[in-house]
Write a protein that binds this DNA or RNA. Structure first.
Lengths: 265, 265
DNA sequence: TGTGAAGCCTGACCCGAGGTCAAGGTCAAC
DNA sequence: GTTGACCTTGACCTCGGGTCAGGCTTCACA
């Protein structure tokens, strides 16, 4: 409202003004640079001198800023009339509420990660991994399966629960469990080992004999990038076991020959 | 255990990888630049090619990042063992909680500003301003007092409630109210008008005759910058009324002569 | 087989709300 | 007259990416 100073001392320095308002000197200069605060008069050596009106303005700006009003909106708000002022505050408050809700959601996610004992998977998937360990699978195999599940959840969330159901059914079948263990042992075989063909046949027969091992929802709608996505998931283990590439290829060929659609795991 | 593409093609492009992970291409490159993700191999034309292991890592990074883990902490966290991983998550969660509490405090402040009908003052101060209006004070005087109170709250928060109590006592005294109104009228007088001396005497007498108009807490501890702070508050009105400088000076001199310490208002 | 669109590459600058030097001028006290 | 605190401007840093700009590469369609 009024011009600055007018008192006998000519006003206080920027350091005092900042201290009174509870901010740093840099912050006050920042407000000047961004037009929130008019520059006060300078004394003979170029120092800024703040009068009571300048301090009042600084306090007003500071009050709004600490309340969460973005700096860009402070000046329009202080220049506005009562009605616009209140409306502006309500608007800012709403945006703050949104940010709070977002942060709370993140925290909840974090808490789930922490409480879920270990990495990035829901309880149901963790139970399956525990069951693999209980069934006597190699810890390295369990670790690989964990990775494959993480990947599956991200790349094919719409099928993730289906995958889990398939896995549960398969682990209920001792025959399948046995074949899988043999498949794991096969990772160190020579890629031309003829036992791989036998194993692939046995695996394909098992899957075809147990429809719930491959069950998909009846309303499943394929997506154009399915091949890429399932390829990445299914072949993740192959990075650790080159022979698996051949085993996988053989099993797939047999399944396709029997008319089973991709995807499966 | 199934279809093919992954190993034979050498992986997916950055755009596909980003789409699978639900982020933008720029975000993936950002993660490379900051060492969160190793650079995958390039194809013959220099394009990045992401394999399943790269995608797995991207998904892990993304999960932590969306949960609110600062990017700088993602890599150490993913490289840590289970124990450190959990400890790290708990730490991040705690910091998130602090930020949430801070934002909620800001929102509460905002809400008080909105509900408090008008600018930057607690209810008790607003009641006093309303009372000034009811007592017939000039709206300009009320506005000036509002500014002085805002300034006082910021510059002397430890005395703000005391100031309000003094004001309440003074407004209970019709004699003081009358003198104050005359003082307001005096703002347009000539600074040498002899009535100013009379008014100053009457004001000082009134204050001295009513100790509660000047009451300070018995345990009040002066601070070295008191003179500056009270000077700014007391003289704020003088910007609008030069004659007030003289009136204030006279009243202060009389009070000091009577042994009353600054501060007062 | 050409062509246009879409995707990829790097590099540079932008946001908010200040923090942190750097290099120098000024002031008050000893 | 020197020391140390305070003031000046200016430039670069944060964090999590967004948004061009300019130049290649690849893909789908005619």
């Amino acid at each position: 409202m009024a011009p600055s100073t007018g008192t006998t001392t000519g006003g206080v320095t920027i350091g005092q003004a900042a201290a009174f308002a509870g901010v740093t000197v840099k912050t006050v200069r920042h407000y000047h640079q961004h037009g929130l605060l008019d520059e006060p008069p300078r004394d003979s050596s170029g120092y800024r001198r703040y009068g009571s009106a300048d301090l009042l303005r600084l306090v007003q700006v500071r009050t709004l800023a600490t309340a969460g009003v973005p700096l860009a909106e402070v000046r329009p708000l202080l220049d506005a009339d009562t009605e616009q002022f209140t409306a502006g505050l309500v608007d800012v408050e709403q945006r703050l509420t949104e940010r709070i809700a977002d942060l709370i959601a993140r925290r909840d996610t974090l808490r789930q990660l922490t409480e879920g004992d270990r990495l990035l998977l829901p309880d149901r998937a963790l139970a399956i991994l525990d069951r693999l360990t209980d069934l006597g699978f190699d810890p390295d195999y369990v670790a690989s399966q964990r990775e494959a599940l993480v990947l599956a959840r991200a790349l094919a969330p719409e099928l993730f629960d289906i995958f889990l159901t398939q896995l549960e059914h398969r682990l209920d079948d001792p025959g399948f469990v046995d074949l899988t263990k043999r498949g794991w042992d096969a990772r160190s075989w020579d890629p031309d080992d003829h036992r791989i063909d036998d194993l692939a046949s046995a695996l394909a027969d098992n899957l075809l004999a147990n429809p719930e091992h491959l069950a998909l929802p009846t309303d499943y709608q394929p997506r154009p990038d399915d091949v890429t996505r399932y390829g990445l998931i299914n072949h993740h283990l192959e990075d650790h076991a080159p022979t698996w590439t051949r085993l996988n290829t053989l099993v797939e060929a047999k399944l396709r020959a029997a008319g089973v659609p991709i995807p499966h795991q």
